[in-house]
Design a protein around this nucleic acid. Structure first.
Lengths: 348, 348
DNA sequence: GTGAAAGCGCTAACAA
DNA sequence: TTGTTAGCGCTTTCAC
């Protein structure tokens, strides 16, 4: 198309307004300590020239970028099969936008990407990072901490080494599971099964723990590990029915799993909830509302988690940047856990 | 945590290697015209110091950022309810990563965000933009073109003004619709209905056009506009059945819509495909494979679209940047349309 | 092939 | 309150 028009500089604005560059700079950055009329003249010049500050030049001196990286470490396609991640991203985006920060998205598919991400983070392109690391053995969190970038994790990180003070935001997976199971118990169910998620993810492990909190003496055959997918839910449900034909309730690790379980129950001629009550987790609307029957499930505020992650990170960045608070006043929570609520529909 | 360690500069590397900054710069950027032994010495110094170039300083002089914005203009939550967008993002990310470009994600929720996005794009923070603008009346594409940033659109833009040479990547919505309807015709169906998507989106309009290509004389009562959602599909299906109880096939604008339609058909005691054959669009696996019966549908390569968008943009950027090709050799396609394929399952 | 020097556009002391 | 000045870390002519 047309030649890229050379963008006006501070210099140009200063010339037009008849002031020094410093003054223009002051006005552009909030305008403290510049007398009204002068400031007004500058603003008009800015307007007239369509001046937009050059971020690179600014970053060079301030060492700030007003940009945050969002790192999604997920080798599996699965993240993309459910809206979970997208919702979280949305929450993050809203919060960052509200504070004039940009969102740099770093998707990783495997080991080879880790080095790239680590390099990028260490390269000081962004002020901080929001990291989703869902697996226990993921080396990425370690690399990132090593890179020395302020970071907030999404979901409780499952490190074997000391989880010393890593900041994270998570849903109350354990508490939510307890709510679900307690509900089933309240319904009078006595043979309650659990289809867990992949246990190398803390969310799955925590939900299983919640299940056990309420039913410490549960028949071990009533628990089967699955993988958070509908297909996995089907397989698990079949196995459970083969092992314990007398079960009268199922708590599934998420809604997708529950939908698979429902299909198998119907296929076997079992009525839900009459014969078997089913509770899911997530309250993923497109799923939970569309199953037959609609799913009773545990709702978590996914978008809220994203927003909170961003908020915690920005707060931390502010503080480091000559914030008014003491350098480290200890009020940085190392983990924030958001509450869940049980949503009753027809399946239990 | 610890004080941010001051990162080594070119200067430091130069000193350690006993050469000038210029030489280090040359080595770091490909190393043309530097003698082997010297280059090796520099590389060792880089390694030893853990030197990473300061991107801000570099951008300041090169006016390149190696970053691309992805703008998602979608006021509705709907984008997030299906994996469509996530898959496309994934394709984009892969391609950008392969070319050492960063992905800056710009999500917009409404009018007020438009100005922000336009400002950001005009601010020269990124080298180009990939824009998803799904609605006919969306003002964003105009703003963006005005910002003068190289741009590739996702989906055929639906401007009323001249679509002069806007580069875009789209699926062959019209052709795919034809495949679907032709398939139903081939099945011997004679009363074929269409549940369209929201017609202010080009994809919906194009699919309807494809339907009409094959059935130019279709009973107008057999076409009803919907909104790409399962709930919308249910409502549309009910209306269709009320209007034309004798219909024997439905082509739904996407899989989500089809899933809603299937539910209504079952509820009305109609067998699929015996009484009514159903075809969807997208081949969104978590949906298409899990419906009862599994959905015959039109597959589009969503990730491929994303990848192609990124590739076209990067190619354009390269060319502008002293590329070896002539300034504008006219081989920039203004629209690239990817083929679709019919996937047969049980529903038709 | 290598080095010296001049900026890229901006902010932040410091003076005035 | 405003202006002057010195860089931020890098690339890139231009001499050597």
């Amino acid at each position: 198309m047309t030649e890229t028009a050379p963008r006006p500089t501070l210099e140009a604005v200063a010339a037009l307004a008849g002031v020094s560059r410093a003054t223009v700079s002051r006005v552009v950055n909030g305008g403290d300590g510049v007398r009204q009329p002068l400031a007004e003249r500058v603003r008009q010049a800015v307007e007239e020239l369509g001046y937009v500050p050059n971020q690179a030049a600014r970053s060079l001196v301030t060492r700030r970028h007003d940009a945050v990286a969002v790192v999604v470490a997920e080798p599996e396609t699965r993240v993309f099969a459910d809206p979970f991640f997208a919702l979280q991203l949305r929450g993050i985006s809203k919060e960052l936008t509200a504070h004039d920060n940009q969102l740099v998205l770093l998707l990783t598919e495997g080991r080879e990407d880790h080095a790239r991400v680590a390099r990028y983070l260490a390269g000081g392109h962004v002020d901080g990072a929001l990291v989703f690391s869902l697996h226990l053995d993921d080396p990425l969190p370690g690399l990132i901490r090593h890179a020395g970038v302020p970071t907030v994790f999404g979901g409780r990180p499952g490190w074997s080494d000391g989880q010393d003070g890593a900041v994270y935001v998570d849903s109350d997976n354990r508490g939510g599971a307890r709510q679900a199971v307690r509900h089933l118990v309240g319904l009078g169910r006595t043979r309650i099964a659990h289809i867990s998620g992949a246990l190398d993810q803390t969310s799955a492990a925590d939900r299983l723990d919640g299940f056990r909190d309420i039913l410490p003496g549960a028949d071990p055959r009533l628990v089967v590990e699955s993988d958070f997918t509908p297909g996995g839910g089907e397989r698990a449900m079949r196995e459970l029915l083969d092992r314990c034909p007398d079960l009268d309730a199922v708590f599934a690790a998420n809604d997708l799993t529950a939908s698979g379980a429902l299909r198998v129950l119907r296929e076997r001629g079992l009525r839900v909830p009459d014969d078997v009550a089913v509770v899911g987790f997530d309250d993923m609307l497109p799923v939970a509302e569309q199953t037959d029957p609609p799913l009773t499930t545990v709702r978590q505020d996914i978008e809220g988690m994203g927003r909170l992650m961003a908020r915690l990170l920005l707060r931390d960045l502010d503080r480091r940047n000559g914030g008014r608070t003491a350098p480290d006043d200890g009020d940085t929570p190392s983990g924030v856990v958001l509450p869940t609520t049980l949503v009753r529909r027809a399946s239990a």
